[in-house]
Design a protein around this nucleic acid. Structure first.
Lengths: 126, 126
DNA sequence: AACCGATATGTATATCTTTGCATATAGAAA
DNA sequence: TTTCTATATGCAAAGATATACATATCGGTT
């Protein structure tokens, strides 16, 4: 959202981001990693999720490893080998996490609407 | 905020960030630049603001220039020369902007409290 | 006119991330 | 036991950012 047409801040947008952080102030997981988890859940493998996101498998694997290490939780159950190479599926913790995150985003969006509106009213005042 | 003591997500924190963006998806100004503007307002010069933030003058100057260019607005009135070298003060646009941002942060914090609480209740469930 | 300290800015250096490449391994199914 | 494909991981190359260094300029005050 921005200001009304022709106003000073017309082509300026207020954006926000939410993420999980550990005590060392390192990011544990944000939007990208949540999306990755969601795609793993939908498509059944890390490879398929990486393809959907148009990122390399190497990168996706690193993202997941990083998140799990920093959380100290297993988010994805991985299976290697087999005719089809293997597969991945969310653990219960992983499932609960993405579900909670989705709800969080919805609530965030709602809360932010009014706040943003007020902000632009204020800065666009003559 | 995190979960209750001993819970799975005890030392995990939910963080958020708000910033202004232009149509090219470039960040115009976020927390750091707002803080810089606020310090310029408080201390009367870019140099003093940079010192307070413990960043180089060069960096602070770059931040300010970048924000003004991308916004297409003058946020700070700068004066060079004189016995004391010069000084800086916020323009009206600059003042309105930091004021609006401060209010925004307060409202964000309030809105987020409940959302965060709900999130951790959910992920910490057994 | 000389001085002083903040504004102004280019350029080089270092650092941190990201991305890509290469290669190994598992293991069910044929 | 050969094959096939996803998981697993090290390492190098490339990009992007941040930080540092150097140097010029302005102009009120003395």
């Amino acid at each position: 959202m921005a200001g009304p047409k022709g106003s000073k801040y017309y082509d300026v947008f207020l954006k926000f981001k939410v993420w999980l952080e550990n005590t060392d102030k390192e990011s544990i997981l944000g939007n990208g990693k949540f999306e990755l988890l969601d795609f793993i859940d939908q498509f059944g493998s890390l490879k398929a999720a990486a393809d959907k996101m148009e990122i390399s498998y190497r990168k996706a694997w690193g993202m997941l490893k990083d998140a799990e290490e920093k959380l100290g939780l297993s988010l994805v159950e991985k299976q290697r080998g087999g005719q089809h190479g293997g597969n991945s599926a969310l653990t219960d913790d992983g499932k609960i996490l993405i579900e909670a995150y989705k709800e969080l985003l919805i609530e965030f969006d709602e809360a932010i609407y009014q706040i943003t509106k007020k902000f632009f009213n204020k800065v666009n005042q003559k």
